[in-house]
Simulated scan of single mutants.
Amino acid sequence: MVLPAPRYRKPANDLRPALPPAQRSGYTSALASPGPFTEMEKLLAVTAIGPDRAGLVRDLSEVVTRSGCSIHESRMMALGSEFAMLMLVGGNWHAIGKLRERAAELQEATGLTITLRDASARPKVDAVPYLVDVVTLDHEGIVLGLSEFFASRGLEIAEMSTRRYNAPHTGAIMFSVQMTVNVPASVHMASLREEFFAYCDAENLDAVLEPAQR
């Protein structure tokens, strides 16, 4: 499939927030690729949230490692006064059993809320990941509108992050959205691109749509 050139709509006064390199590279980590997992490996999706403090990442990663498991993917961030962690963890049945026990002990000792769910590798799909970068004055319904746009076309949002911040110089409250959308090869990309930017124009959103680096 030939990928059309990305279209850019640069916001006035360069109000788009700088995106750290680590966050940009994180876009492509869990998209169309199912991941390098072994057939005998058991996977767990682990979530943990609790009051932010130094050492939370160490505590949880230590529990995973000492149980004999390994971290395949992770997302960690502060949400107000709370700290949230999402991890995809792999190990054999014995290691997974140890992890369940140690996670329960850590939850009781620290007050973290920890959830473990059985997971499986993502099936391989014939899709191209696209980066969507949107910035606008903050108002209600931004995420809802964008998610409805892609859902109504049967497109999967693989990753998304949002941020509210003050614009430099003016101090206006801005809202930015970065997401990765998996676009099947059967989708006519030129038409999707035109529909997306027409939507952004109607909603007064400054947007970038470009293929993700893989």
Rank of each mutant, 00 (worst) to 15 (best):
I114V: 12
D201Q: 12
R164M: 11
L112M: 06
G171N: 05
L112H: 01
V125S: 13
Y165G: 14
D126L: 15
P123E: 10
T113A: 12
S147K: 05
R163L: 13
A119F: 12
V143N: 07
V125I: 15
T162C: 13
A158L: 09
T115L: 09
P123I: 13
P129S: 07
T162Q: 05
V187A: 09
V177L: 13
H188F: 10
F197H: 10
R122E: 14
H169S: 06
M160Y: 02
Y199N: 00
L192W: 04
D133K: 02
E195H: 04
V181R: 06
F150N: 09
T115A: 08
G141P: 01
V187P: 10
S152F: 00
D118H: 06
P129W: 02
F175I: 13
E195R: 12
A119K: 11
I173S: 13
E156Y: 12
D201Y: 01
L116D: 00
V132R: 02
L144T: 05
D126E: 13
Y130M: 08
R193A: 10
E159K: 13
F196Y: 07
A172E: 15
L192D: 02
L116P: 05
K124D: 08
D133R: 04
T113I: 09
M174F: 08
Q178M: 10
A185V: 08
A167Y: 02
A127T: 14
G171V: 10
A202W: 00
G141Q: 00
A121N: 15
L131P: 00
D201W: 03
L146A: 03
H169Y: 09
E140Q: 05
Y199T: 03
L146I: 11
A121L: 15
V143S: 06
L155I: 13
L144N: 01
A190H: 05
M179N: 00
P168W: 04
L155H: 08
R163M: 11
L131Q: 04
R163S: 14
S152R: 06
E195L: 12
M179Q: 03
S152V: 04
Y130T: 06
T115M: 05
S152P: 01
H188G: 03
D138K: 12
S186N: 10
K124N: 11
L146E: 00
R163A: 14
A185H: 14
C200I: 12
E140H: 04
T113P: 01
A121I: 15
V181K: 09
S176F: 06
L192Q: 02
I114Q: 00
V134S: 02
E148T: 08
A198L: 07
V134I: 15
E148P: 01
S152A: 13
V135D: 03
H188Y: 05
D118G: 12
A185W: 08
T115H: 06
I142L: 06
S161C: 07
S176L: 07
S120P: 04
S191A: 15
A190D: 10
F175W: 11
M189W: 02
E148W: 00
T162L: 09
Y165P: 14
T113R: 10
V183E: 01
T170C: 07
V183C: 07
D201V: 11
A121D: 12
V128C: 14
T170L: 06
